[in-house]
Simulated assay, not measured.
Amino acid sequence: MAKLRPLMDVIKVDIKQIAPGSLPVLARALKMPGQKLLAEKVETVEEFRECMDLGFEYFQGYYFSRPVILSGKKIAPSQMTIMNLLNLLSKDADQREVERSVKHDPLISLNLLRLVNTPAVGARFRINSVGHALIVLGRRQLQRWLQILLYVKGAEFDSPLLQMATTRGKTMELMMEKLKPQQRVAADIAFTVGIMSLMDALFSVRMQEILDCVNVLDEVRDALLKRDGDYGDVLHLIEMIERAQEGPELTGILHKLELAPSELYAIQVAAFEWVNDYAQGVR
């Protein structure tokens, strides 16, 4: 282990495997210049704060997706603008109406122009108008970008909640491509379910209230509220993986979906790579 230490950039610590009271000593022993500590299985705010105080810089765990419902909390105006845009796209609104809605929010317009002029989109020449940007991006990518933009505060493209939401969305999309080949719409819906599954944590508002604000398919609603249907099964599987749950229930869902563990692993790796590439492209 000591010989490998100089080769490490990030050291992951499963805090559930550490004896009570031993984490401070371990963190001091592991903390080295040029290396970062990652705390895994962070499930409470107390654990998160302790790890922060001990110098951990990266975190994984269910704590980040656990919604804290605030009574009377309202969705911010900028977020509501994005939700309204997503509604227009789901209703296949006229292009001019979509463009007008984008132009009403300077921040969205600016971010849109910034996005289409990055290598991630691949435009061959600079795009300076909202209308042209919408055409180049296309409705499917516009919808995906807006869903991700909901989680972005300022320039924080590396927030834990954003990374978890985009990873869920891409993992669900790839799973649905595997389960239902040639059904592009099903894969797109799966991405939407994955992204929306953390909106209660994002907004600190109950999922039912969020769904009352947007026009979604019954299958999406059932998946988000009850974990029902194919999308609900896939979402439940991802949640179990995030919590490192193992046993008969996990095996049962994999069997129901006819998904081999090796296929699941390959999908997870592909999703992580996509999220990393996307984040680098929009920073």
Score class of each variant (00 low, 15 high):
H104K: 14
L112V: 07
P119N: 13
E219R: 02
N128W: 04
W274F: 13
L254D: 09
V216S: 05
D92G: 02
F59M: 13
F64N: 12
V193Y: 03
H255A: 11
Q95H: 08
P24A: 09
G131T: 03
M52L: 09
A279K: 07
V121L: 06
M240H: 06
A266W: 04
P261M: 06
V42F: 06
V13T: 04
M176K: 03
E273H: 10
E239P: 14
K36D: 01
V116I: 07
R124D: 00
K91A: 05
S65D: 13
F59C: 13
I210K: 10
K178Y: 15
V275T: 07
V152S: 03
V216K: 03
A186V: 15
V25I: 09
G247E: 07
P106H: 02
I108L: 14
W145T: 15
N276E: 11
I69A: 05
R227A: 10
M83V: 08
K103T: 07
L142K: 05
L224F: 01
Q79F: 04
N276M: 15
P181G: 05
E258P: 05
R96N: 15
E209C: 05
D9H: 11
S197M: 02
G34Y: 03
A39D: 03
L4M: 04
S109Y: 02
I189Q: 12
N84L: 14
Q60V: 06
F125A: 12
S197R: 03
V68F: 07
L150S: 04
S197K: 02
Q245S: 09
W145F: 10
L26G: 06
I253P: 01
L146Q: 09
A39P: 10
L202T: 02
L89R: 01
K31F: 14
D92M: 01
V220E: 15
S197W: 01
A244N: 02
M1R: 07
V282N: 14
K3E: 10
T251L: 15
V193G: 02
E47D: 13
G55W: 00
G72W: 01
S22F: 12
D228Q: 11
L7I: 00
F272A: 12
M1L: 14
V275Y: 00
S109W: 00
F272Y: 10
N117G: 06
N215H: 08
G61Y: 06
E239N: 14
